[in-house]
Amino acid sequence: MSLGAAELLERIRALDLPEKVRIMNVCGGHERSITQAGLRNALPPAIELIPGPGCPVCVCPEEDVYQAIQLAMNEDLTLATFGDMLRVPVNVRKTEIRSLEQAKAAGADVVPVASPQEIVALARANPDRRVVFFAAGFETTTAPVAAMMAQGVPDNLLLLLSGRLTWPAVSMLLNSGEVGFDALIAPGHVGTVMGPEEWEFVVEDHNVPAAIAGFDSDSLLAAIYSVLRQLQSGKPALDNCYTRVVQSGGNPTARRFLSQVMEVTDATWRGIGTIPASGFSLRDVYAAHDARKLLPDYGDDARRRVGEMPAGCDCAQVVLGRIYPDQCRIFGAACTPRTPVGPCMVSDEGACRIWWSSGKRTRVEQAAE
């Protein structure tokens, strides 16, 4: 029988812990659950839970958002995207359109959607108009997009894809020589699609304890307890604490659609740079629906060099787990959900937005170096 949250907390508090244990939780959904449940305050002070690179909106390249804005403003088409992407800002002068939300307000045909099915229905309802689906997301979002393409879409539907894989970012951190965590909580939703095996490298290649967790307090605390015991024993292992959903091999249908429709390529992560084999692109057989091949490219080399975080914004450091959200220089001052400067304050999976929404409203003064 699985243990409940109260008993797991008792067992964690009974452990003989070192002065500091840093546990990175990769997933934005995990960060939301941890913060809303108040787990940081409930755990012993020696345990630091560090938000990681699990927000696809936060790492979507600035040049991709810029391209979507320019397509919506300058081409005769409908631009559809998931709701979070509408407010992500790009680095332009204040007098220019800096988000899809502003483009919509200026008259562009921009439509927020919640699922690929809505996109297909929109395209079928407007057969004489091009509909571009700007799709940013990790494996759990990209798999339904791949299924949509594999099952057939109307001729007028084009895809502007900005899909990313989760594990390469963690691999980059572990190989960077600046590892800021002692153990890892891996994302349950990605494990559901791709299988737990994708995270075995954390243990096998880096000797770092890891556990896969779901999104309730019981599963998260079980994963935290697991990695703490692994650290104590000196025997790292990958522990699946979300077995009711995450199964060996993942979802074979979703993986088949991903393999059929997508190729894995090197990809840019906003504020981080290029991570090898971390992105998805459409295979050539789907070229007739690839917006990157069929529509003008508005992102010149200068735009790609600009494609970092805005001045003063420390979103990249938050995403990499090097600082907490309230240690950003503009958190709660220039940057709030009403006036977001960086993408981490936009998305419901962005750590800055999560912290703000849970009552953390001002930045902390960092100790002097």
Rank of each mutant, 00 (worst) to 15 (best):
M1W: 05
S2D: 12
L3T: 15
L8W: 06
L8H: 08
E10V: 07
R11T: 03
L17T: 06
V21E: 10
M24F: 01
C27V: 00
H30V: 01
R32T: 07
A37W: 00
P45R: 14
E48M: 02
E48A: 11
C55G: 00
P56F: 02
P56V: 02
V57T: 14
C58V: 10
Q67E: 15
A68N: 09
A72D: 06
N74V: 00
T81K: 00
T81E: 00
R87G: 01
P89K: 12
N91H: 01
S99V: 01
L100K: 06
K104M: 14
G107S: 02
V113G: 02
A114V: 09
Q117E: 08
V120C: 06
A121Q: 15
A123D: 01
A123M: 04
A123T: 01
R124M: 08
D128H: 14
V131F: 00
F133N: 00
F134S: 05
F134E: 05
G137A: 05
F138K: 08
T140I: 09
T142F: 04
V145N: 10
A147W: 05
M148D: 10
Q151H: 13
G152Q: 14
L157N: 09
L159E: 02
L159P: 02
L161T: 03
S162C: 09
G163Q: 11
R164K: 14
T166P: 00
T166A: 15
P168C: 08
S171L: 11
L173A: 13
L174F: 09
L174V: 08
S176L: 13
G177Q: 15
L184N: 07
L184T: 10
I185L: 15
A186L: 06
T192D: 01
T192W: 00
E197C: 02
E204W: 02
I212Y: 03
L221N: 09
A223G: 13
S226K: 14
S226C: 11
L228F: 09
G234R: 06
N240E: 06
T243L: 08
V246A: 11
R256V: 00
F257P: 00
F257L: 02
L258A: 12
S259Q: 14
V261A: 13
E263S: 14
V264R: 15
D266Y: 10
G273Q: 11
F280K: 12
S281H: 11
L282C: 10
L295C: 06
D297T: 10
Y298T: 12
A302G: 03
G307M: 12
M309N: 15
C315N: 09
A316F: 14
Q317A: 14
Q317K: 15
V318P: 13
V318K: 14
V319K: 02
L320Y: 07
L320F: 07
R322E: 12
D326I: 04
C328H: 02
I330W: 03
A333F: 02
T336R: 11
T339C: 01
G342C: 05
G342R: 08
C344R: 01
M345I: 07
G350S: 09
W356V: 05
K360L: 08
R361M: 09
R361H: 15
T362C: 05
E365F: 09
Q366R: 15
